[in-house]
């Protein structure tokens, strides 16, 4: 029993961390309609910065109390990813056209190469010796807080401006919405959330390598959001669950099958696109009468 608990803690943590990343990307992709192909790079920025903070800066400043160190690491992770997000997005969003996908992709490449060449954070071997400050409780408390804050954020002025900008930029501007800052805010807040997830990750596994910035990691998060349903927070968490559960379920399968996980994800995406283009979340809604959309109810009522 104890073994089972021990064994399931890591996947659960990974699920929680992936879910936080997916929530961040949901704001960018579903909320603002922007495509980021480098979400994992911002996650890595957060992870490396948070690790550097708790390994070098924290002790130098005399901060050793674990709770305080972890709290500050989360802040450092989120804030550094936010700054990186600003750096990448400002030039792209100033231009007309969809340069953001390419720029985020390029950023991930550059970051990966740079990290491999910085010896103080481990170079190609990866950053080791990070204190274990994170826990299942930290991960799920953060997941809960991020989820709550984002659900609240949607209804704020800025949240509404972001959704309006996604739906129609010209109309948004004609109503006084600064579409540039709406898109920029969505992108940097989403990236900052990825950075927070990175901070949780490094202090759970006590390790991070430049591979975490890799394009394939970013694709997985995009898949989580698309599979779960771009328009809802719940959908993104559901997507994260699937993306973490599938490889876990295949853990004891023969190597030949296990290594094809991208193929399984592709099959899931095709299935979702065929049967529920709005994501699995909307498929679930069909079976949950309680969640039947208010819209449908209103439509029935006023006819």
């Amino acid at each position: 029993m104890e073994q089972l608990i021990e064994y399931s803690i890591l996947p659960l943590m990974l699920f929680g961390i992936t879910a936080i990343q997916a929530l961040g990307l949901q704001l960018i992709l579903g909320g603002a309609g922007l495509l980021s192909l480098g979400h994992a790079a911002f996650y890595a920025v957060g992870g490396y910065s948070a690790a550097a903070f708790s390994v070098y800066a924290g002790p130098a400043l005399g901060i050793t109390q674990p709770f305080l160190l972890m709290s500050l690491s989360l802040f450092v992770g989120g804030f550094s990813a936010l700054l990186a997000g600003l750096l990448v997005a400002i030039p792209c969003l100033r231009l007309q056209g969809d340069y953001l996908a390419m720029a985020t992709l390029g950023f991930a490449e550059i970051l990966g190469t740079a990290l491999k060449n910085i010896e103080s954070v481990g170079g190609t071997r990866g950053f080791t010796g990070i204190p274990k400050l994170s826990s299942l409780a930290w991960v799920f408390a953060t997941l809960g807080a991020v989820w709550w804050a984002l659900s609240r954020f949607r209804r704020t002025g800025l949240g509404m401006a972001i959704q309006a900008t996604r739906d129609d930029e010209i109309a948004s501007r004609s109503l006084g919405i600064n579409t540039y800052s709406a898109k920029l805010s969505a992108f940097v807040v989403g990236s900052a959330i990825a950075g927070i997830a990175g901070a949780l990750y490094v202090h759970a596994l006590q390790f991070i390598s430049p591979d975490e910035a890799d394009f394939s990691r970013s694709v997985i998060i995009v898949l989580a959001v698309v599979i779960g349903g771009m328009t809802s927070l719940f959908g993104s968490v559901l997507g994260a669950l699937i993306l973490v559960a599938v490889p876990e379920a295949l853990r004891f399968a023969p190597d030949a099958i296990r290594e094809q996980r991208m193929i399984y994800f592709a099959l899931i995406v095709i299935f979702v696109m065929l049967f529920s283009p709005k994501g699995l979340q909307s498929l679930l809604e069909r079976f949950l009468p309680r969640k039947k959309s208010k819209i449908a109810a209103a439509r029935g009522g006023s006819k």
Binding site: T156, G157, Q163, D167, L175, G176, T231
Partner: peptide, 21 residues
């Protein structure tokens, strides 16, 4: 040019979002 992803009420609410940004 309405906001397709928003309800009727939200369409109107979005139009004053910058008053409280």
């Amino acid at each position: 040019r309405l906001f397709a992803g928003l309800t009727v009420l939200e369409n109107v609410v979005a139009a004053q979002s910058w008053h409280r940004r």
